[in-house]
Simulated assay, not measured.
Amino acid sequence: MAPRSYALFSALYPPHMGGVERFTANVARLLAARGNAVTVVTNDTEGQGAGEKDEDGVSVVRLPCHPLVSGRMPLPRPCALRSRLLREVSSRRFDGVLVNARFYAHSITGLRLARAQGLCPVLLDHGSAYLSMGSPALDWLVRRYEDGVTALGRRYDPAYFGISERSAAWLGHFGIEARGVIPNAIDAAAYRAQASARDFRAELGLSAETLLVAFVGRLVAEKGVRQLLDAARDARLAGRDVVFVLAGEGPLALEVAGAAAATPDHVRWAGALGVPDVAALLLQADALCLPTRSEGFSTVLLEAAACGCSPIVTDVGGAREVVAGPEFGRIIASMSADEVVRAVMELDDDRSLVSLRSRNCRERAELFSWNRTVDALERALLTS
């Protein structure tokens, strides 16, 4: 394929960390490695300094913004610098425009630019439910905001895709028919190779026989953190050699620390970990438990699978792609502590499941390569 010029609009981008950020960064780097000119237009959520600079062969344009909700919900900050940067981006001729995702004000900027150049933008949605802030009042406002931005985006008639089958189906809630799936991905071998040398079992005083159930992510209610802690205190696990190791930081960090102090036989908190340490933890864990409320296509599911760490996960985006059957992991019916306990006891009662699921997950992770994802993305960008 001849080199092309692409614009990727993503409200969030590294060093802000999350699934959308990592997806955009990986796609941008691979598109550039294929000889394409790639411009990422994002927001200056981390105070890097608004402007444009080259990052790994990708031109990254950071726009001035108001980084609300710890940067998770950036809103445009109108000013002369923002206007100048957008004029410079608009002056370039693109062959395709990708917009991540449906519910950001930033997305409208990308849709508008694409249509101004006579292009049909590709809008890749990364959700499978409404965003949640953990407050009924805030969640009501967020839903109305999402509805409004989604309706505004539809005026530009983009080609909609989902990051997972569940994400594509969720678009139907808004009366939108997805054209297909452009899935999340991982370089499984590279992810394992960059794991640190930390021995978490030794650090936490766990034996090789301990069933180590990991959680990796933001310590927030929507990820099912409280359900995990309730499961660890469940009487059915008393006397069993099962330990939940939680890695991450967030508003519920004090609750996690308290549970680790009060229930050390079943709960440990590893704190916030960098990527190499997360990989090391997943390589040593027997299962990843993610009783989350919503995901588009959780990156940590792919990271765990690459490490042979089988998932126990709610039926959210990406779950059925990774957990293709009981021989790969366990999809639980709800976020409840009872569902978590029963899935963990199943593993503890039959340790052969650990090795079976580990082998199968590791093999399955190889299907989700970045080359396949970028192939699908380029086809969508050039044919929509």
Rank of each mutant, 00 (worst) to 15 (best):
F368P: 08
H126S: 05
A365E: 05
A159E: 02
G274Y: 06
A190F: 09
P276T: 11
E203F: 01
G224I: 01
R62Q: 09
P311R: 00
A193D: 15
H266P: 08
A195G: 00
T45F: 09
G127I: 10
R240P: 01
K223R: 00
V69Y: 13
A2D: 11
A7I: 06
R154W: 02
A114D: 00
N371I: 12
L288C: 07
E378W: 01
L30Y: 03
A37L: 10
T45S: 12
A324Q: 15
R201E: 10
Y104L: 00
A257M: 12
E327N: 11
S298G: 11
A25S: 12
G250S: 05
G329L: 01
P158C: 00
E363K: 13
L30E: 15
L281P: 03
L68M: 13
P15Y: 00
F103Q: 09
L282T: 06
A202P: 07
L75Y: 14
T299A: 14
R201Y: 07
E55A: 12
M133R: 13
G296A: 07
S135W: 09
S83L: 10
E295G: 04
V354K: 03
E339S: 14
E327C: 10
F9H: 03
G51N: 03
A28W: 08
I182L: 13
A376Q: 14
